[in-house]
């Protein structure tokens, strides 16, 4: 083929693929909004704050970003209500080991950012991030563990290396807090015993469940 021929192949071939790409883009634009909840004014303001504080400079969202701090796509599903609002305002008061700096986020701004993150968590992402397939850590089959799992305590707390890092590690919690009554009060209303705590209260937990959970916690020495 002559050079003119390959040049034409390059120019018109590329245009051909670009036209297909534009057609797919048009189709995608029509479908995107149906794959996510409605964008309220609060969500939009939250997104603007997301940009203002350059959150993507450390975090990823929908898997894209900086890989330095946790992905936030499903963060509102994984953290209890109220926790993120507190964390965003004073990250290191809520979690002393946090790498996140104090950015001067106000409580009102935090609420909007959480609304935006909550919107993102509901986007249909074709099943991403995938659920872990090997999460088979064997915890003792006792009632307290069932309660622990029912209230998703491992979203924030860790026992034996498994679980989140937002709250204190509970692997040896009984060595620090051996008093069973302290645990019961703390679970029902954390701020009544630890005023700076960002853990939400659990008034919905039944007395029986509370006893079972506290019995389990004081075995963790």
């Amino acid at each position: 083929m002559s050079n003119r021929g390959v040049r034409n192949l390059f120019v018109f071939g590329s245009l051909f693929f670009f036209v297909i790409f534009i057609a797919l883009t048009v189709d995608t634009m029509k479908k995107i909004d149906k794959r996510a909840p409605e964008i309220t004014e609060e969500v939009d303001q939250g997104k603007k704050l997301w940009h203002k504080y350059d959150c993507i400079g450390c975090h990823t969202i929908l898997g894209n970003g900086s890989y330095f701090a946790p992905d936030l796509t499903k963060i509102t599903v994984n953290k209890p209500e109220g926790y993120l609002e507190k964390f965003l305002v004073h990250p290191r008061k809520v979690k002393p080991s946090a790498a996140m700096p104090e950015l001067g986020i106000t409580p009102d701004e935090a609420k909007k950012i959480v609304a935006f993150l909550d919107w993102t968590s509901k986007v249909d992402t074709n099943g991403w991030p995938p659920k872990p397939v090997l999460a088979a850590y064997r915890m003792p089959q006792i009632p307290g563990v069932t309660v622990y799992q029912k209230y998703n305590c491992s979203a924030c707390h860790m026992i034996g290396g498994i679980g989140g890092t937002s709250g204190p590690d509970l692997t040896h919690v009984a060595s620090r807090k051996p008093d069973i009554e302290w645990h019961k009060r703390h679970i029902r209303d954390p701020q009544s015993v630890v005023p700076s705590s960002a853990m939400p209260p659990f008034p919905q937990i039944s007395d029986e469940e509370l006893n079972q959970l506290a019995d389990y916690l004081i075995t963790l020495k």
């Binding site: 071939g13 479908k31 794959r35 929908l62 894209n64």
Partner: peptide
């Protein structure tokens, strides 16, 4: 360009875009 233009699609797997 033949591969790269539509190859953009590998960024559109998990961000809330259609399955195709």
């Amino acid at each position: 360009l033949f591969t790269g233009i539509l190859g953009t699609g590998h960024h559109y797997y998990w961000i809330g875009t259609p399955k195709y």
